[in-house]
Design a protein around this nucleic acid. Structure first.
Length: 629
DNA sequence: GGTGTCTGTAACTGCCACCT
DNA sequence: AGGTGGCAGTTACAGACACC
């Protein structure tokens, strides 16, 4: 019995391919074979026995990258669960021969999790559900060749958001007289698009890529390789520095060896990218985040359970208020106050200039959103407004922020609507997995019981690298999350002055008695010494504090994780720092590996890859450290 | 007061992927 | 094929502060 998994992305880097292979290996619990060119398989058994239609489906839309797929010989098993999990694969084909006996065929398919009635088992094509196709062919009087084609759920969720690009959804509905009619027409467009999508994928009729207005069929979007498949669910909802690539978040969870109902933890959750997919995989997740803005984004991004009816009603109500609003001058004092606050708080004159002309409208929108009773819906809309504030403070934009906000709200609502519709069709229970975001710091996770977590994924802050609040400053001030500003960057958070005893109340982590007696491993101490010797005193202090905090965090992670379970950490392989006028490669991944080992973790493996940053910034190579308790 | 040290902010590089 | 956006950073510079 053969299983062919066809790669979805153009993974040109061998490391990335290895990552994909690792994922499918661990899910199939077998070793798979790399396939460079899928077309060459066609000459070999059992592929040479397949009908043209199946060959067409297998060979269509393959990438011209390093590799096009992976092949494995597997025993009969619950393969449907694999379709629910994989990240990197466009389609999965299972091919096997079976005796020409309906009962035996039924049994074999049953073992894979496909339940069919005898009268359904006619030769030709069977569609038992939206993500499975079965092709039956008589090889001889005795034998049948069975091909089962699975469409991974992740792929279908990614495609679902593409239906928003169809004309029926893009253009303003002609018939609607009010907002309810407007949204209903758009929703109908999404539903029609999803239906068309599922049909299209099954027929395999190729739509050639072209640009511009010619696009009016879903195939024009999903068959075209440059379609951005990294934005399913509510990923990319809000700008956040250090956001992980959604592609790896699901892949990492697949490497954790967890099952439905388990609980995973991200101790440095940030804006939530690494756990946002958990509910669609039937997992519970806990995220720990120290910044309020990160926590808020994560809460919205990870909340696929949100009451969508209520959300639409609130949006319509808000839009009606916006339409009838007259801007009065009675907020003058408030406006002056907030202007002053932004000027002082950001110290960024450009952002100040850019945003002040829109401030009255922003305050108006914020007030109206604050009036909404439902906390989840309020937070959802506040985060969308925050994203607009960030955009408008970065660039000098003249067009109306209210219109821009309305379009954005509509877009995100329809994304959510499409996701929920697709989940309904695929019978995925979005309410099953629960995500909790806790404001706190991972050096003290006393709220979490020991040995209670089934797996952990994270991308920790990288030494002193990043200002996490960066462009979000103006929005943080307007939303009133002021405390974020004082420790929003790794640099500020880990700098020496926070060890000042007078500041213990504001930063409890440094109050820990443990802090002063922490022993660091030699690789950490060497880095600190190197920095001290090069007169970079400030940086050496920051790095020392960072490493000590990371050690405390490792200890906590070790405590909460179950025995033998995994902790995956995505970290840059090295940093290029200029020390004594010379560029030095600091092996940051090795240093953190040693730190993990010093609290008792084993290193079960290291996967090198270049995927994590969507558009590859300074960090060229990332390591995934696989710690095991 | 001179000198060195520390700290925060704005301005900036060059490359790469994406888009049309 | 050319334009554009953006980067898990660095450097220059100015001002604050520490110490003699």
């Amino acid at each position: 019995m053969f299983c062919l998994a066809k790669v979805k992305f153009d993974l040109r880097n061998p490391d990335e391919l290895y990552f994909a292979q690792r994922e499918i290996d661990s899910l199939l619990s077998t070793k798979t074979k790399f396939v460079k060119t899928i077309a060459t398989l066609v000459n070999k058994k059992p592929f040479n026995l397949l009908d043209e239609e199946v060959i067409h489906l297998i060979t269509r839309l393959v990438y011209m990258g390093e590799g096009q797929g992976f092949l494995a010989e597997i025993p009969l098993k619950e393969i449907v669960s694999i379709a629910k999990k994989v990240t990197f694969f466009r389609e999965i084909y299972v091919i096997f021969e079976v005796e020409n006996n309906p009962e035996l065929l039924k049994e074999s398919l049953g073992k894979m999790g496909i339940i069919l009635r005898s009268e359904q088992l006619k030769n030709g094509k069977i569609d038992p559900n939206p993500y499975t196709q079965i092709f039956l062919k008589n090889l001889s009087e005795k034998n049948k060749l069975v091909t089962v084609r699975f469409l991974p759920f992740q792929t279908l969720f990614e495609y679902a958001t593409e239906v928003k690009k169809l004309p029926a959804v893009v253009f303003r509905p002609q018939n609607s007289v009010n907002w309810i009619g407007y949204f209903k027409e758009k929703e109908a467009g999404v539903e029609k698009g999803i239906k068309e999508l599922l049909e299209h994928i099954k027929t395999g009729h190729y739509r050639s890529p072209h640009f511009g207005l010619g696009k009016n069929h879903i195939g024009d979007f999903v068959d075209w390789a440059s379609t951005d498949l990294r934005k399913p669910f509510l990923h990319y909802l809000h700008k956040y520095k250090g956001k992980g690539d959604p592609r790896i978040s699901r892949a990492l969870i697949n490497l954790l060896d967890v099952k439905e109902g388990d609980t995973i933890l991200d101790p440095f959750v940030g804006s939530g990218a690494f756990i946002a997919d958990a509910p669609t995989m039937g997992l519970n997740a806990i995220g720990i985040e120290v910044l309020e803005i990160g926590k808020m984004i994560a809460e919205v991004k990870c909340n696929l359970r949100i009451d969508i009816q209520g959300l639409r009603d609130s949006i319509i109500k808000l839009f009606e208020i916006i339409d009838g609003a007259l801007f009065k001058q009675d907020i003058k004092d408030e406006l002056i106050k907030i202007k002053e606050k932004i000027k002082k708080g950001t110290g960024n004159s450009k952002a100040y200039e850019n945003i002040t002309q829109h401030l009255a409208k922003i305050i108006f929108l914020k007030k109206e959103i604050d009036n909404i009773n439902n906390g989840e819906i309020k937070k959802f809309l506040l985060i969308l407004l925050s994203q607009k504030i960030v955009e408008y403070s970065e660039k000098s934009r003249r067009w109306d922020i209210i219109n821009s906000f309305k379009f954005y709200v509509e877009d995100r609502y329809l994304t959510l609507f499409a996701t929920k519709k697709m989940a309904e069709i695929l019978n995925v229970d979005l309410n099953r997995g629960k995500i909790t975001i806790i404001k706190g710091d991972s050096t003290n996770m006393s709220i979490i019981k020991g040995n209670s977590i089934d797996g952990m994924v994270t991308s920790p802050p990288y030494f002193d690298a990043l200002d996490y609040i960066g462009n979000n400053k103006v929005s943080i001030l307007i939303l009133g999350l002021d405390e974020d500003l004082s420790w929003g960057s790794t640099k500020a958070f880990y700098e020496g002055k926070h060890r000042d005893e007078t500041k213990y109340e504001t930063l409890p982590l440094f109050a820990s008695d443990k802090y002063f007696s922490i022993q660091l491993p030699p690789s950490s101490l060497n880095l600190i010494k190197l920095l001290q010797a090069s007169r970079r005193v400030y940086k050496s202090k920051v790095v020392e504090n960072y490493l000590k905090m990371m050690k405390l965090s490792f200890e906590e992670c070790y405590r909460v994780l179950r025995d033998n379970k995994f902790y995956l950490m995505v970290i840059s392989k090295y940093h290029k720092w200029i020390i004594n006028d010379r560029e030095r490669m600091i092996e940051t991944s090795a240093i953190l590996g040693d730190l993990g080992k010093s609290v008792g973790f084993k290193i079960a493996g290291i996967i090198e890859h270049g995927l994590s940053k969507a558009d590859k910034g300074k960090i060229g190579v990332e390591d995934i450290l696989i710690f095991q308790k």
